[in-house]
């Protein structure tokens, strides 16, 4: 399998890549050369046939096309693209500054849109491939960290529409909505029972990729938790503090 991973140093992406490693060829994208190197070596030992790394700050949208060009040049045909970059920014800072909010939206939503726009066309030409986008259960309803929620919600809706377009061309798009995962992003939270390991969600993600699922809540119970959260009346919901 030829796999491109954007945000390849993310804990969730690493766990997914480790499961897919045997015989795969990877093109890994993230900001830190050193971390990318550690991930690349790990995947090689786990059986990957070839691993190429590419350093880029995804906030620099001008670099997106060049990055994807290089990915397709390196791999030839691409079977799977995983978009897993993201930040859980400082909500309070966002409330005080649009610049901060914009930055969060650029990282978590607009960069995804930029990448998907190019990717969609490339995969349509290929008439083959799967795109897996890591959204979040946070995108299902605007809560306290509503800037992040908005970005993830917008991503999910964008993917929903794009999926319809891709479908007609034999290209598949999977939206992944993880619940709470123990990763650097959530390291500063006090982690209760609902937190699971990146390995746990990776198992579901890989399975969903193989089964060509459209929408994945992982672990499964988040589908029902979010159903409950979404069905709370707004008058009640606005008074709640989570």
């Amino acid at each position: 399998m030829n796999i491109v991973i954007i945000g390849a140093t993310s804990a969730i992406a690493q766990a997914v890549a480790q499961r897919l490693a045997p015989q795969a060829q990877f093109f890994l994208v993230a900001r830190s050369e050193k971390r990318l190197q550690a991930v690349a070596t790990d995947l090689s030992v786990r059986g990957a046939r070839a691993v190429t790394t590419h350093v880029v700050d995804l906030l620099d949208f001008a670099q997106h096309d060049a990055t994807l060009d290089r990915a397709f040049q390196t791999l030839g045909k691409v079977d799977l693209i995983l978009l897993s970059h993201g930040t859980l920014g400082d909500q309070q800072a966002c409330e005080m500054s649009f610049a901060e909010t914009e930055r969060e939206l650029r990282t978590n939503f607009l960069s995804v849109v930029s990448l998907l726009t190019t990717l969609a066309n490339r995969l349509i030409t290929q008439r083959h491939g799967t795109i897996a986008v890591v959204g979040s259960v946070a995108g299902d309803r605007g809560r306290t960290a509503y800037v992040y929620c908005a970005a993830k919600g917008a991503t999910a809706i964008f993917c929903q529409g794009l999926r319809r377009r891709l479908f007609r061309h034999g290209v598949h798009l999977l939206t992944i909505k993880p619940g709470f995962v123990r990763t650097p992003m959530t390291a500063h939270f006090s982690q209760g029972r609902l937190f699971v390991s990146p390995q746990r969600v990776a198992r579901d993600i890989v399975c969903a990729i193989h089964r060509k699922k459209n929408l994945l809540y992982t672990p499964w119970y988040w589908r029902w938790i979010m159903l409950a959260v979404k069905s709370l009346p707004e008058g009640l919901f606005k008074r709640m503090t989570f």
């Binding site: 804990a11 550690a38 991930v39 790990d42 123990r182 390991s197």
Partner: peptide, 10 residues
Amino acid sequence: TRPLNRFIAF
């Protein structure tokens, strides 16, 4: 230490 789960060389 569980997240430190990368292979380095084999």
